[in-house]
Every structure is written in C-alpha cells, then in structure tokens.
Amino acid sequence: MKDTVVRRPGRVVAAGMAAALLAATAAGCEKDTAGGQTGTGEVRYPTKTVQLMVPAAPGGGWDLTARTMQKAMTDGKLVDQSVEVYNVTGAAGTIGLAQLVSKNRGDAHHLMVMGLVMVGGVVANKSPVKLDQVTPIATLTAEQEVIVVPAASKYKNLKQLMDDARAAPASINWGGGSAGGTDQILVGLLAKAAGADPRAMKYVAYSGGGEAKAALLSGDLTAAVSGQSEFKDLVASGKVRALAVSGATGVDVGGGSPAPTIKEQGYDVELMNWRGVVAPPGIDAPTKEAVTALVDRLHSSESWKSALQKQGWEDFYKSGDAASTFFTSENQRITTVLTDIGLG
C-alpha cells in the first residue's frame, strides 16, 4: 500500500537531469565504469558517485528507504564518494526496472531500490523486462500486512471470514492497494491456503490507503488488506477490527496488544512486504561482492539501526546467496499466485 504509484514528476526531473549530467561527466573521465581494480585484485567500490534509483514517486516507502540508505552511507562515512537518489515513477516500478536494465547495464554505480510490489508489478503489468535480469544484492526491510473488517462486521476471526470466502466467495468484497500489489497477493495466498478458489475472490483495487478506508467505512467492502500501519488510527478508535497480521509473529496494529498472525489461525501463509536493493545486469562476481560488502556495512551501521527503529521497519536482511535464493523463490511464489488469481 505504501508503494502505490503516484504521479509526481517534479523533482524526478531535477534529480534525473543532475544524475544524467554527472553520469556523463563520470563516464568521460573514467573508462572502467564497473569499479576500479586495486593492486591486490580486490575491487575498489565505489570509485565515483553512487546513483540510487527509486522506481516510484518521492514520499513512498521505496523513496524513504533510498533516502535512509543515502543518509546512513554518508553519515557513517561508509563511502568516500557521494550518494545520489533519483526517482523514476510509474507502473509499480517496472518503468524504472526497464531503465535500469536497458541504460545502466554493467554499471555497478547504479543501484535500484525495489521490493515485493515490483515482483507483483512485473507479472500483473506484463512487463517486458523481468526481475531475473537484474543482479540481486540484498533485502533490507519488511512490513507486515493486516486484514481488517468494520467494527459492526459479523466476522470475529479470520476463520469465519475464510469459511465464508470458501463457501460463498461472491458474498465477500476484499479491498486494498493497486492490482497485483502486496494486498491482492495476500488475498490470493490466503484463499489458496483456505481451500478457496483464488480466482473467485472479489478484489477491489484502490489507489491509496485513504480511498480503501473510506470504502470500508461506507460499506462497500467486507474486509480490507493493507500495510500494518495504515489502519492504526481506525483500529485504535474502535471503528475497525484487525483479524490477522501476515508475519511470523504478531504485532500491535493499534489495538494495544499484538494481533494474531495468519499462521496462528491455521492457514499456512506468511507474507512480508519486503524492500531490497538490486544492481543492473552484467556485473562481474568480484564487483558484485564489493557492492554486497558495502550494503553489509550499511546494514550494521548505527545510523541504519536507529532509522529502522524510527520508521518501525522490521529488519529483514538477506544478502549474497541468501538474497539470490530469496528473490528466486519470491518470484516463483508471486508469479504462481497472480496466475492463479488470473492476473498473470
């Protein structure tokens, strides 16, 4: 829900133009764009400005992640070069993805923030560029999802809701963020786990948290799915009831005590809206290691840790082979479920 696509082209351009200018100058001075070789054979990285692409508008979850990374890298003196963030908006990040693959091939100084929403976007938008074309570096943070119903709803727990979803799918109106995004993926996974037909789930997509909230309160929706923080105020004021969260352990979503997880209620579903970072294709192994080492240092920095705390992000760090494996498995799982829903 946080990573919904918005049109906010202004600063994109300013940053984009600055980035293009810098890239051009840098390319002129230096032939080896993948990183310099030191005498010992180890790759020195970064040797010039690191360009961090946010494939969404300023202000969203990806943007915040990138700017936090930028701050942590510069504050902690992890790099002696500068770090720049620029935005390429559109289509669940797939436009930025296409740009990274086509324009920045082999250039390890271009990195892109991405996440689960992009995995879904590639499938749902039938993007010509796939995620397996990029070089995975690491996953960084994650946020749980929450399933809520209006206070007056007859559903007191997830099981009642899913029983009806199986027996009479037309009676339940699910709502959440954009089509093919985290929220719809969760509905699909949940339906499969409960033995219901994912394709029969009626999912209504909204462009932002505010719209889905209004629709839940006006009576259009039976249940809404969103990032865990989105409904905090309504849960706290007693207007909606949280039925479940999607992580491994329950978290407080406004009710004062941790909400039960989906697993605790008998369905084998765990879904985190994770965010990570990738590099363009065509990066050789030593360079990839150097980039990964930088992100490792970022993750263990004090600045990053305090940022996690402040933003309420869960630490969800996987790098190197663990990251590659995770990317592949998520890609498979999401593609399958979206195909089951009928979006693939």
């Binding site: 797939t94 436009i95 976007g121 938008n125 039938k126 954009s178 089509a179 093919g180």
Partner: peptide, 16 residues
C-alpha cells in the same frame, strides 16, 4: 482495477 495496459501501443511512455 486489473493492472493491464490499455492503448499504450506497447510503449513504456504511455504506461503511466
């Protein structure tokens, strides 16, 4: 509602 592209003639420019 469905995330499908319409009238974009296969171009990225019109996706948004």
């Amino acid at each position: 509602l469905t995330g499908q592209a319409r009238f974009t003639f296969g171009t990225m420019e019109l996706l948004e």
